[in-house]
Simulated scan of single mutants.
Amino acid sequence: MKRRVGWRLGGLALALGLAALAWLRWPAGDDSAIAARAASAAPPASLRGTLPDGAVAADARGALRVDQELRRLFDYHLATLGERTLPQIRAALLRDLQTRLPAKPLAQAMNLFDRYVAYRQSLAGMTVAASADLSQRLARARAVRLQYFSAAEVAGLFGDEDRYDAFTAQRLAILADPSLSAAEKQRRIALLERQLPPELRAAREEPVKHLVLAEAEADLRKQGGGEQELYQLRASMVGQAAADRLSELDREQAAWGQRVNDFTRERAAILANGRLSAKQQQQAVAQLQAQRFSAQEALRLPGFVASH
């Protein structure tokens, strides 16, 4: 199965990579000829076995749709900088877009890509005082963007990232404020999180969702909650489908635990039988294990039996 390359490169890291090379003029000539030459070139090693990230499309009026999916596609190609020159990257992108866009949005996309590369190079050359905090650095980067893009293009390419960066800057400022108590910091951060757009809030919560759920389950059990209450808790936090899967997993684990307990008890009885020699005991235990567990299950068994 082909793997998918993660889209979000560090902005500063990519910019530094671009700045490490001298500015290369795009090759002169007809774009169709340039794309044809790119078609004959082998893909760089880092892209082999991957699917292009991002997407590109025209809107209802036939103009290029400028959004973060388009930026992801730009970054997918720019991730090969070092393996390919900037002109080679541009030619490969052009070839890719020619199969997806009519002439008008195609020209808009390539123009936007040229400005995106120039923006990245400008960002890499930007000097910011070491004492500047995150909010100051973000404000400087946003000012640079407006030198290369319209306000609508900035919103399309960087909207979600700007909102999350603003959240991060405010969160750090709250944590660093010595005048606030721990409880007040927690309250203000919780308020900030509620103000995030739903999709950004979900992305932020996803990595720790299972930890929050496990803590909530433990609290419920301490309070004497039963299976119905546990199911309702899970459904409210992760959805009904996930709650159903977790309930099924609970049943499977309980059944497995019972089988291990039964095996452990019968194994102990065999080993305690003084009428059997050591060899006979080993044979009886092996036969019991083969009767109760498949070969795959037997691979899991030693760790569970040792804990009983």
Rank of each mutant, 00 (worst) to 15 (best):
E252M: 15
G62R: 12
F74A: 03
Q88A: 11
K104C: 00
A183C: 11
R251K: 12
A284W: 03
S150E: 12
A295E: 07
L106T: 07
Q195F: 07
S307Q: 13
R4P: 00
R292E: 06
A129F: 07
Q186I: 08
G224T: 07
T80F: 00
A91M: 04
G225W: 03
A36M: 12
P197D: 05
V117E: 07
F263V: 04
R95G: 15
A284S: 13
T264A: 13
R25L: 11
R265W: 04
A268E: 10
R90D: 05
L86V: 14
V238M: 11
A107V: 06
S46L: 12
V154K: 10
V144F: 06
S307D: 01
Y116A: 02
E205M: 11
E215T: 13
S277G: 14
L134W: 06
I189Q: 02
A15S: 15
D31N: 09
I189T: 05
E161V: 15
A92D: 13
A118E: 05
S135L: 09
A124H: 02
R251N: 02
L276H: 10
L211I: 07
Y119K: 06
P52S: 07
R115F: 01
P27C: 09
L196C: 09
A129N: 06
P178F: 04
Y148S: 04
A255Q: 14
S150W: 10
A79G: 03
H308G: 14
K222P: 00
I174C: 02
R163Q: 14
V154Q: 13
S131F: 08
L94K: 01
R204Q: 13
Q68D: 11
S247F: 09
R267C: 02
P87L: 07
G156F: 06
N111A: 15
G224P: 05
A39H: 11
A79D: 08
Q195Y: 03
R25E: 14
K209D: 02
R120G: 12
A182V: 12
D262H: 11
R61N: 03
L97S: 01
L271T: 05
L86R: 05
A306S: 06
A242H: 02
L93M: 14
V144E: 14
A141D: 04
T99Q: 12
A166P: 01
L200I: 15
A38M: 00
D162I: 15
R204Y: 07
Q147P: 04
Q291N: 02
G257C: 05
E193V: 14
S122L: 06
H308M: 14
G49V: 10
N261S: 15
L233R: 07
M237I: 12
Q68Y: 07
K185T: 08
A298H: 01
M110I: 14
P105I: 08
G226H: 10
F293A: 04
A298E: 10
A129T: 07
H77A: 09
V154L: 12
H77N: 00
A272F: 08
